[in-house]
Design a protein around this nucleic acid. Structure first.
Lengths: 236, 236
DNA sequence: TTCTTGTCACCTAGGTGTTAATAT
DNA sequence: ATATTAACACCTAGGTGACAAGAA
């Protein structure tokens, strides 16, 4: 069995509608997909991998004229809407790549003795990418999937391929691929929770992440002080 | 067979008497021990590891009163001698630890397809170290050794332990463990060739390492401009 | 108008020798 | 006197969103 790490954070993002940046050079996911694994044969070899499947066959876009610009830090934030419109049918599918965890293959004991982190996985929108990154269409929704493959030592292992792997799906890790954040609340939550974005925080530098307790909604403390663009949209 | 990478650089250090810093927290080696491997069975599993054996049973020290201090950058360098005196018999042997390459075990094909780098290996003088670092005695000389272990799939593989590994020794990688550099020419060569020490270079920032050609003695360009403390020692 | 790209300042994370203080 | 330690400035290496300019 598999347990998703940082589930509380994933839930918080998912509630807002998670967005993941895709770039030509490749961008990591945040939150990082991390799991704890139980019940493997400690002595057997396993491959761990991830892939991404479209949630639907739709292309999305931002609603017309719902953008607004807040004056507070002068012209700093271009607020986008948190709602999405269906823009039509999905673009042609991207090459269905797969990301093997770099430690693969390894013994079950090795995988189980600590959290498995897919922090080397990168997302790109470059259809011609030759760095082995995951290729996604911007403005489309994706579901990450996690696969465990048992390395069968038998000579005719191909025959048993069907029974030698297991797939795990965590719906709270769904996201929309974007080239720039569309929902400002997502941006703020990323800034509040990703250490690499610390430079953009304007709130108490002490409170995060040291004082973080699940359920206390502390992540949005930075955003709570500003206006909510969803509840008070404005035409330009 | 195994080929030492950066052999020219190792030779240059070895000619001066290589020194490696040991610290309580653990210090990487520079140059890094890196090899190219040939002739493995591409489908078989191997473990790669290193250990360090004393070159002799002596303890070394700096000659009495041979230190000098150059005025050029005011009081910046405490020049030590490049010669060593035998200070007596070696201290009690340190725990004979071994460093497994973190990718171990892996297939021969994996090991051979690129340079194998031991850049995670760290040296410490802390006898109570619990980070798995290599423990060495300061002021003692050591010979790094590289071992390739074939992972025998047979049930009674223990019986064949003797024939299932091969050891490679490169004498040009010998060094003296120190807590502070003793030979200023070693310091200068480290500064000239280690990218992380770039902040201490005072020579043409363009010339290294882009223009480096083996045999042209360009590494010492920074040092060549200053006096040679070996050929002109001074009493204090 | 909407989306994408490239550059940037600002971070995290950690590898250097220097230096002054301390230990032996 | 010699050897070790710990704090430090200065690097490498690379992950952030902001922003202005460009593309569709």
């Amino acid at each position: 069995s598999v347990q998703l790490e940082m589930k509380a954070l994933w839930d918080e993002f998912n509630q807002l509608g998670t967005e993941m940046i895709v770039t030509k050079a490749g961008r990591r996911m945040f939150p990082t997909f991390q799991v704890k694994i139980f019940g493997m044969d400690p002595m057997a070899d396993y491959m761990l991998l991830m892939d991404f499947v479209p949630v639907d066959d739709k292309r999305y876009r931002q609603p017309r004229g719902l953008r607004l610009r807040l004056p507070s830090p002068p012209g700093r934030y271009a607020f986008h809407s948190s709602s999405w419109l269906v823009a039509g049918k999905a673009d042609p599918a991207t090459p269905g790549r797969v990301h093997y965890h770099p430690d693969s293959p390894a013994k079950g004991a090795q995988w189980m003795k600590q959290i498995v982190s897919f922090d080397k996985l990168k997302l790109t929108n470059n259809l011609l990418d030759d760095n082995g990154h995951i290729i996604l269409n911007s403005m489309h929704r994706y579901q990450p999937r996690f696969h465990v493959v048992y390395v069968d030592p038998r000579k005719d292992s191909e025959k048993y391929a069907e029974e030698n792997f297991k797939t795990f799906v965590f719906e709270e890790t769904r996201f929309t691929a974007v080239t720039a954040y569309q929902n400002h609340r997502i941006t703020q939550l990323k800034i509040a929770s990703n250490p690499f974005a610390k430079g953009f925080r304007d709130c108490d530098p002490e409170d995060w992440p040291r004082n973080h307790r699940p359920g206390a909604l502390p992540l949005m403390s930075a955003f709570a002080r500003s206006r909510n663009p969803v509840s008070s949209p404005a035409h330009q």
